[in-house]
Amino acid sequence: MGQIAVITGGTAGIGLACAEKLHEEGATVVMSGRSAERGRKAVARLGSGERARYIPCDVTDPRQIVGLIEETVDEHRRIDVLINSAGGVTDDGRLVEQQDDEALTRAFDLNVNSAFLACRAALPHMLPRGYGRIINMSSLAGKTGVAGLVGYTTAKHALIGYTKTLAKEVTARGVTVNAVCPGITDTEMVSGALRNAIENSGADFGEAAAHYTGDLGRMVEPAEVAVLVATLVSAQSGAISGTAFSLDGGFSQF
């Protein structure tokens, strides 16, 4: 594969699974996250060496996002793949009428603005070469509403809209942009923030999980998401752009 890939939120969950899969296929992987300890463990899990690197980055800080991209390019002379996997649930289960004024701001900073800023920083290094692959990690919540998760669901819907708009602007210039929308996935976020938000809204997490897993009847595995991502960022995927791919056991069916 030989690509240079930057993965925000790449030290855990879906991001780490994507890092492992791309590294396995020959990519040089730069993983970002806020925890140096997680970063160290992620690099060790990939076998260290010259093809795995951790760069600390808080994606809610625009300067750090620019620094992540620039440091990668300084070291590797290019960036081929950007996977915006950083994100998460900022909601606490409160319903819309109970939310404070900052509910959407928090969710957008983490789930939408971070991807916008990372793409903007990476595109000047992709467009002149006429090549790039961008993946924005949305969610099943980007295709349906979830009570008690107004910030998260609104942000993930917006991320799909951003993906489609950016694809209209850059696909003809060799850069593909797609969104991936996993259903409830077996990650730390599901066992922590997402579970708490759903339960705090008055819903039973087990019932909600059973509902949103669709015909699959189980949670999605991070490695399953990584397989799709690896396909979408391959050099042979140039005709695939502007699409939001569902991995939710047939729940959304679009």
Rank of each mutant, 00 (worst) to 15 (best):
L149Y: 04
T213R: 11
I79L: 12
S138C: 10
N84H: 07
L232M: 10
Y212F: 15
G249S: 12
R34C: 03
N111S: 05
D215V: 11
K143N: 14
D186E: 14
A52H: 07
E25H: 12
A244D: 09
E224I: 09
D91I: 04
M1Y: 02
A158F: 04
E24K: 13
L228H: 14
L123C: 05
R195F: 00
G148Q: 10
L110G: 06
N178S: 09
V220Y: 13
A244G: 11
V227T: 13
R133M: 09
Q3D: 04
L247G: 10
G130K: 00
T144Q: 15
P62L: 07
G148P: 13
G202A: 13
P222F: 12
A115P: 06
R45S: 05
L117W: 09
T163Y: 00
N196S: 12
L68T: 00
T8M: 09
T176P: 07
D92M: 01
A44E: 15
A141P: 09
N200A: 15
T163S: 14
R38L: 06
Q253N: 08
L166A: 05
T213K: 06
G249A: 13
A141Y: 15
T60W: 05
G238D: 10
F245K: 07
H125K: 07
E71Q: 12
A121S: 14
K143C: 06
A208K: 14
F108E: 05
G26R: 07
S201D: 05
D74H: 08
T187W: 03
G33M: 07
K164Q: 15
V73G: 04
R63V: 04
Y54C: 08
V89C: 12
R34I: 10
A12M: 12
V190W: 14
L46D: 01
Y54F: 15
M189G: 08
L166T: 07
G151Q: 06
R218Y: 13
L228M: 15
I79D: 01
G217V: 12
L110N: 03
A118F: 07
I55S: 05
E71S: 11
T8S: 14
A115R: 03
A155D: 13
V29R: 05
L194W: 06
G13H: 05
K156A: 03
T213D: 03
L232S: 09
S32Q: 11
T154F: 04
E221W: 08
G217E: 13
L194R: 05
T72C: 11
K143W: 07
T185I: 02
E224A: 12
V225K: 01
G145W: 14
V225R: 04
R129I: 00
V177I: 04
T176V: 09
L123Y: 08
H23P: 01
V233Q: 03
A172G: 14
L247M: 08
M137I: 13
S237C: 12
P56M: 10
R45A: 03
R78W: 03
L46S: 01
L232Q: 07
G15L: 06
I14G: 05
S234C: 10
D204I: 05
D101F: 10
R129K: 15
I14F: 06
A226F: 04
A244R: 06
A103Y: 15
R40Q: 06
V150G: 12
G174I: 02
R129E: 02
